[in-house]
Every structure is written in C-alpha cells, then in structure tokens.
Simulated scan of single mutants.
Amino acid sequence: MVKKTTIDLIMDKLAINNILKIQSLSGELEFERASSLYLKTRKQSKEDASLSEVRDHLKKLIKKYEQEHWSDEDQISDEQIKESDFAEAFVRNENEFLQKRKELIRKKLKTYNLNQNDLARILGHQKGYMSELINGLRPFSKDDIIVIHRLLKINLEDLFPPFIPQERAIHIKSILEKLSASGVKLRKQDLNLETT
C-alpha cells in the first residue's frame, strides 16, 4: 500500500465533497489551498447551489484560520512566514499546472471535434462533475487520466501534476545520500517548487 503524503491528505481533505466536514484548517498549505478553492468556486457557485454552501463554509474556515494565526503581528514568526511563502508558491504552481492542463484538454477535444460533455459521457461522469474535474475542483482519477492520455494523445506529464512534495523530496534526498554509490540524485530544481 502506498503511504499518502501530507499533500495527498490535504488534497483529499479539501476535495469538494469533504469541505463541509472540515472544522478547521491546519497549516499554511491547507489555508492556501482553501483560499484558492474559494476563488475557483466563485463562478460555479452561482450555477450550483451546493457549491455555494461549500464556498460559504470555506470562507468561515479561512477567516477562522486568519484570526487564529495571522491577527497578532507580534506572534508571527519567521518560520510561519517561510511556511506561508512555501504554501503560496506550491498552490500557485499547482494552479498554473491545472490551468495549463484544462486548456490542453479543451484544445485536444476541439481538435477531435468533441466537447466537454462528450468527454464526460466517455468517462462515465455527469456534466457538472466533469466541469469540476476540468476546472481542478476535484482531482481526476488515475483511470480518467489514462483514458484522456490515450484518447486525446496528451503526454502523461501534462496530465499528472509533476510536483514532488517538499517533505517527500527531502526524504528521497536523505536516502539517496546514504546510497551514494548509486549515482542517482535529485537536482536542486527537483526540490524547488518555483522551477517545476
């Protein structure tokens, strides 16, 4: 069984269908992802009342986190600022990847004279659910990604986010240092989210 990383757990926790179960955000990465999701759901919440409820709950979670962690300037540490900067960079890169993937899928669909609804039918999804997948509100399943890859001839690296979460990259680097004879190494840019 594959151990889930902190990033995977945050993504699961902040999946659209889990948001209403969340009582509080724990950490800067969750805060940044919740803030991003809040902005992403603005347009869709006007069309889907259930997303409006999710968006309202996200707003409450965000405000609560800000009050608990950012309201007293004297209590903000350099480590907290560093963690915030890291989380912001990670979410920005993640959003850029999702936007690029969305545009690529739409372009390929057009090339094959298909639309998003056709893709939803092919994958066995409802129209609204497909919209949430395309817009990055829900993660694609591995099976969906493989079908899109084969059907639309899109490279897998353009469909799967290429990020190695920092904690995982650090773990890999420490193990590789112990296995120094192997010659396999992570380059500096492999650890740096800004250059992914």
Score class of each variant (00 low, 15 high):
residue 1 M to R: 09
residue 2 V to S: 06
residue 4 K to R: 10
residue 5 T to C: 00
residue 5 T to N: 00
residue 9 L to M: 13
residue 13 K to I: 02
residue 13 K to F: 03
residue 18 N to T: 02
residue 19 I to A: 06
residue 23 Q to S: 12
residue 23 Q to Y: 12
residue 26 S to D: 14
residue 30 E to V: 05
residue 31 F to M: 07
residue 32 E to C: 11
residue 36 S to Y: 13
residue 38 Y to L: 14
residue 40 K to S: 07
residue 41 T to E: 06
residue 43 K to G: 02
residue 43 K to C: 01
residue 44 Q to G: 01
residue 45 S to A: 11
residue 46 K to W: 05
residue 55 R to F: 01
residue 57 H to P: 08
residue 57 H to Y: 00
residue 59 K to C: 08
residue 62 I to T: 10
residue 65 Y to S: 06
residue 67 Q to I: 15
residue 68 E to W: 03
residue 69 H to G: 03
residue 70 W to P: 01
residue 71 S to H: 07
residue 75 Q to F: 05
residue 78 D to K: 14
residue 79 E to V: 12
residue 80 Q to Y: 05
residue 82 K to E: 06
residue 83 E to R: 15
residue 83 E to V: 00
residue 84 S to I: 01
residue 87 A to Q: 03
residue 88 E to L: 10
residue 89 A to Q: 12
residue 91 V to L: 06
residue 93 N to Q: 14
residue 95 N to S: 09
residue 96 E to R: 11
residue 97 F to M: 04
residue 97 F to Q: 03
residue 98 L to W: 09
residue 105 I to S: 04
residue 105 I to H: 03
residue 106 R to G: 07
residue 107 K to A: 12
residue 109 L to F: 03
residue 109 L to V: 08
residue 110 K to G: 14
residue 114 L to Q: 09
residue 115 N to G: 12
residue 115 N to L: 03
residue 116 Q to H: 04
residue 121 R to S: 10
residue 121 R to K: 15
residue 123 L to W: 07
residue 125 H to R: 14
residue 126 Q to R: 11
residue 131 S to F: 03
residue 131 S to L: 04
residue 131 S to I: 04
residue 132 E to P: 00
residue 133 L to D: 00
residue 134 I to G: 00
residue 142 K to Y: 09
residue 148 I to A: 02
residue 150 R to E: 10
residue 152 L to G: 07
residue 152 L to H: 04
residue 155 N to Q: 12
residue 155 N to S: 12
residue 156 L to H: 04
residue 161 P to W: 01
residue 166 Q to S: 11
residue 169 A to L: 05
residue 171 H to Y: 10
residue 176 L to R: 06
residue 181 A to V: 08
residue 182 S to K: 10
residue 189 Q to V: 15
residue 190 D to V: 02
residue 191 L to K: 12
residue 192 N to F: 04
residue 194 E to Y: 13
residue 195 T to H: 11
residue 196 T to Q: 09
